[in-house]
Amino acid sequence: MGYKKILATAIVIAFLFAGGCTEQESTDNGTIEWRDTELTDVTTGETFRISDFEGKNILVESFAVWCPTCLEQQKEMQVLREMEGTEAIHISLNTDPNEDAEKVREHVERNSFDWYFAVAPNEFTQALIDEFGINVVNAPGAPVVLICEDQSARLLSGNVKSAEVLEKEIREGC
């Protein structure tokens, strides 16, 4: 594992354990229900929850603005969105504790992306780690979670996934 991956992982973990919990719905073991956590789109200011899209396929990408691999994955997401007949909600979540909504908004505008972008709250990021493991926030690994119509979910393997691979994963389901 390269030093950037180790450093990014260590920063995320340190930030998560340093931050306190905000008032959010939690399970019996204290883990928040990340699908029901309110997120704010950095370009529109509108709030949404992943659970708002129940009944639809959703691709949730964990990323950081500094990550060139993430940008490659986002460009594949853009290709997928332009493919005829492909229907999925796209959500890109910045999980780098050193980046804020303004930095993410600049990234979205600079690259002309047009789907949901939000900064993940600490508790949300920790809940993702709890469910999928630390690789779900390893930005250089281009992590993408597929959430199926019934809200079941799985972490897609591999690094940058082409639009064709993403479409195939959506068809295969959870």
Rank of each mutant, 00 (worst) to 15 (best):
D41E: 06
E99W: 02
P143N: 00
R171N: 13
I11M: 06
P97D: 07
V60F: 01
F15K: 02
G173M: 01
R105F: 01
G85M: 08
E167I: 04
P68K: 06
L146W: 01
K168E: 12
K161N: 15
P143H: 01
L93K: 04
N57M: 01
P68Q: 05
W34Y: 11
V144A: 05
V108I: 04
A14S: 12
V79P: 08
L155N: 03
L93Q: 00
S62N: 01
F15C: 13
E46L: 13
A8T: 07
V12I: 14
G85Y: 00
L16T: 07
M83L: 14
S51L: 04
E99P: 08
K4E: 14
E87W: 02
V104F: 06
P121A: 06
S112A: 15
T22P: 03
M83E: 11
V144N: 05
V108E: 08
E123R: 05
V42E: 12
P97M: 04
T31A: 09
A153S: 15
L16A: 09
P68I: 09
I129F: 09
N138S: 14
P143C: 05
S26R: 13
K103E: 15
P121R: 03
S26M: 11
I170N: 10
G133E: 04
Q74F: 14
P143K: 02
I91T: 09
A163C: 05
E46R: 07
E106P: 03
F113T: 00
S92L: 10
E109R: 11
D52K: 05
N57H: 10
P97T: 00
T37M: 14
R105N: 13
E167P: 09
F124C: 01
M83C: 12
C21W: 10
D41L: 09
I32S: 04
I91K: 03
Y3F: 12
E23A: 09
N122Y: 10
V137C: 09
K168A: 14
N98Y: 11
A18K: 13
V12E: 01
F63K: 06
G141F: 00
S62G: 12
A88W: 03
L156I: 03
K161E: 12
H107V: 03
D52N: 10
T44E: 08
E61Q: 12
E84F: 05
G20P: 06
P121M: 10
G20N: 09
T95P: 00
D41C: 13
V165N: 03
A142K: 00
K5C: 14
S26K: 09
A118F: 08
C67T: 00
I11L: 13
A8Q: 11
C70H: 06
V12P: 02
T9G: 14
N111S: 08
D114A: 14
C70T: 03
M1W: 08
L39N: 06
S51F: 07
